[in-house]
Amino acid sequence: MSEGSGTAVLAAVRALTPALRARAVEAEALRKVPEVSVKELAATGFFRLLQPKRFGGFAADPTVFYDAVREIAQACGSTGWVASVVGVHPWHVALYDRKAQAEVWGEHGERADTRICSSYAPTGRITAADGGFRVSGRWHFSSGCDHCAWALLGGVVTDAEGKPVDLRTFLIPRSEYGIDDVWDTTGLRGTGSNDIVVDDVFVPEHRALSFGPVTALDVPGHAVNPEPVYRLPYASLFTTAISTPITGIAQGAYDAHVTATRERFRVSYGQKVAEDPFAQVRIARAGGDIDAAWLLLRRNIADLYALAERGTELPMELRSRTRRDQVLATERCTAAVDLLMENAGGNAMRTGPHPVQRAWRDVHTGRGHAANDPERALALAGQIALGLETKDTML
C-alpha cells in the first residue's frame, strides 16, 4: 500500500467521524452498528486496509489501520470496536490456503468487500472427517456478525480417545451458520456481539487453520501474500485490535469532558469546575495515561512492522513487550475514564446520552475481553524478561 493511499483512507475515515458520533445513540438503541455506518466505512476502504493486494486489498502498514480505528472509536465506541475486530479479520484470512482466500474474496478479488466476523474461544464440537472436519456448537460474542458473510470460529480437535491434539480456526460461510440475537448489555451495546450457531457443518481442510503454524509465523498464505504485514504475530495484531478502540473511547471521553468542564459551574462550591485544582489534576492524570497507552501501543506495532519490512526475525522480547503494553493500555484507559467520571458530577449518571458515561460503560465492558486479562499477560512478560521458557499462543 502506498503512503498516499493510506493517507486517503485515513482522511476519509476522519471525515466520516461526525456522522458516526451523531449515530452513537442509535447504535445503542439498535444494539448493533447502523447499516449505513458500515456501508460508509466500507466506502472509505477501511475494511480492506489489512486485506491482501492479490484480493483487492491494500496490505497496509498496520499503524494506519490502528490510527483509523482510534479515530472511529473516539466518535462512537461500539462502531470503533466493531470496525477494529471485523477490520483485522482479513489479515487472518490472508494466512489461509489460497483456495480459502479465493472462496471468501473471489479468485481475483471480485468480492473484495466481503466482511468476516469471529468467535475464537473454542466452545464448539469438532470431529475429524475425510478431507476435513465436522463442526457443531455455539460461539459467543461475535461482534459485528450481522454485517458479515463469513465467520472465523475457534475449536479444539480431539483424537479418537477425546484427547486434545490441535487448536484450529474454522472458516465458515454465512449460509452454514445461524445468528442468535442475545446481545443486551450495559456497555458496548451497539456492537451486536451475538452468538454464532453451527449444526453439523463440514469444513474442508483448507478452511481449518492450526494455531501452531500461525504462532510460528509459517502459514500457507505466505506463499501467495508476500507483503510484510502478514509476517507479524497473530497475538500482537489481534490483542492490539482489542485495546486500540479502548484508547479511542477514552480519548473521546477526555475531549468531551474537557470541553464541557470549561463551562461547567459547581453550585455546591460556588465556582467554575475549571478553576478547581483537584479537577485539574484529575484531567491531567487522565490525559497522561491515555497518551501513554496509545503511544506505547503504536510504538510496538511500528517496531514489529519495521522488522517485518526488513525480513528480520521478530524477537520474543518485542512480542512480549507488545502484549505487556497492550493490557496496560486497557488498564490505563479504564482508570483514566474512571477519573473523568469522578470529575463529571451527578448529571453524568443520569439515564441519557452522556458521552463520558457511555465511554465509562464501554471501556469497562471492553476490559472484560479475554485479551485484556492483565495478570495473565503480565506474568508472561515477566517470564520472558527473566529468561524463563514459556509457551503461549498469545505471544
Rank of each mutant, 00 (worst) to 15 (best):
G287I: 10
T312W: 08
G311Q: 06
V281E: 13
R310K: 13
R282V: 01
R285I: 11
E317I: 01
D276A: 07
R324F: 00
A274N: 03
G311N: 11
A308G: 08
A286Y: 08
A302L: 08
F278L: 15
A306D: 15
D303F: 03
A308S: 14
E317W: 05
L295R: 13
L296K: 02
R310P: 02
E309G: 06
R323V: 05
D291Y: 02
I283L: 15
G287V: 08
G288S: 09
R310Y: 02
A274L: 13
L304M: 05
L297T: 04
T312P: 00
R298D: 11
V281A: 11
M316Y: 09
Y305E: 12
D276K: 00
L297Y: 01
A306W: 04
E309T: 12
L297Q: 11
F278C: 06
R298Y: 08
I301K: 05
P315N: 14
A292C: 03
R285M: 13
R298V: 05
E309M: 10
R285S: 14
R323L: 03
D289I: 02
M316T: 14
A302C: 04
A279R: 14
A293F: 00
R285V: 15
A284E: 15
A292R: 05
L314P: 12
D303I: 01
A302R: 11
F278M: 10
R299E: 14
P315I: 10
L318K: 13
A284N: 11
N300R: 09
E275F: 07
R310H: 07
R323F: 01
E275K: 07
A306G: 07
Y305L: 02
R321W: 05
A306C: 06
L297M: 05
V281K: 11
Y305N: 08
R323I: 07
L318A: 03
D303L: 10
L296Q: 03
N300T: 08
A308I: 07
L295I: 02
L307V: 05
P315C: 13
I290Q: 06
T322G: 03
M316Q: 15
T312N: 06
D291W: 02
Y305D: 09
G311H: 10
I283W: 03
R319I: 07
N300F: 03
R282M: 06
A308L: 12
T322K: 04
D276P: 00
A302N: 06
Y305H: 14
M316N: 04
S320M: 05
R310L: 13
E309W: 04
R319V: 11
R319K: 15
I301Q: 14
D289N: 13
R323W: 04
L297R: 01
R319E: 12
A292D: 02
R282H: 09
R285K: 15
Q280M: 07
A292S: 08
A293W: 00
D289R: 15
R298L: 05
A293H: 00
D303M: 11
M316W: 08
V281M: 11
L295T: 09
R285H: 08
